[in-house]
Design a protein around this nucleic acid. Structure first.
Lengths: 126, 126
DNA sequence: TATAATAATAGTAACAATTATCATTATTGA
DNA sequence: TCAATAATGATAATTGTTACTATTATTATA
């Protein structure tokens, strides 16, 4: 099921996701929009986030626990804080040739890659 | 809760995981051992896999859907097949200095990293 | 080698995250 | 304006995982 008709709900979800620079879960987006759209449904948030990540408008990131979403569709890397479980951008330059290089070590074709760093964010260190 | 006393169940789980080179989910390990240990409990499999990954004996890998486990505790990279959802090893040499290099692009301290490639495995391509 | 302390288990219930269902509403092209 | 149908809200169902508890197994020490 690809996106065809527009909806206020989807516009609000994309807008919210692109304005924030954290990487909220579906529920966090739902809670953020709930005030302005009191009868928004959590299922609608999930459905739209999935459609949007399938057609490449946004990114879905699985790191254990609830999935996180990222309004920045350009490939970039992340760090997961083991204390607060928040996900942060790591502006390390994307390794452009890693996919072509890796293909000889892999058993199939490669279409994309992600790098996730694990550690403790400054907020949790202090 | 760290491991102190041994158990046949945990030994079987570690043994199973180290013998196979796929990256089974908790349920796949449970099903594989169920024949030989008919009253093994799925909760026991989960509990042990978590204890073992916490003390670094095995690895837990989250890529969406059920978590996968890897008996090889050395850092190495993986590819997720978007067709069959199986996780494969990618023997691309580990980028030893990426964590020190990335720290200046990150907002905290880094303790480890993973690289996940996405694509389609040979089994699903043919 | 008994025994006492307690870690680990099986079985089950509870929980969290996500998806499916379906009647109603909103969007859009003719 | 209206018909076709995509999208929604509300809720039920499903999936993956953790928590609970009485019982069993392991292990250190007498």
């Amino acid at each position: 099921m690809a996106v065809t008709k527009r909806s206020k709900q989807r516009d609000a979800i994309v807008n919210e996701l692109c304005q924030r620079h954290d990487h909220p879960t579906a529920e966090e987006i739902y809670l953020a929009l709930k005030t302005a759209m009191p009868n928004l449904s959590l299922g609608t948030v999930y459905r739209n986030l999935n459609m949007l990540s399938e057609d490449g408008t946004i990114q879905k990131i699985s790191v254990g626990g609830a999935d996180h979403f990222d309004g920045n569709a350009m490939n970039h890397y992340h760090m997961l804080c083991s204390e607060c479980k928040r996900l942060y951008d790591v502006s390390y330059p994307v390794i452009e040739d890693i996919e072509e290089k890796a293909v000889s070590f892999a058993d199939g074709k490669i279409t994309s890659h992600t790098i996730t760093f694990f550690g403790v964010c400054n907020g949790c260190l202090h």
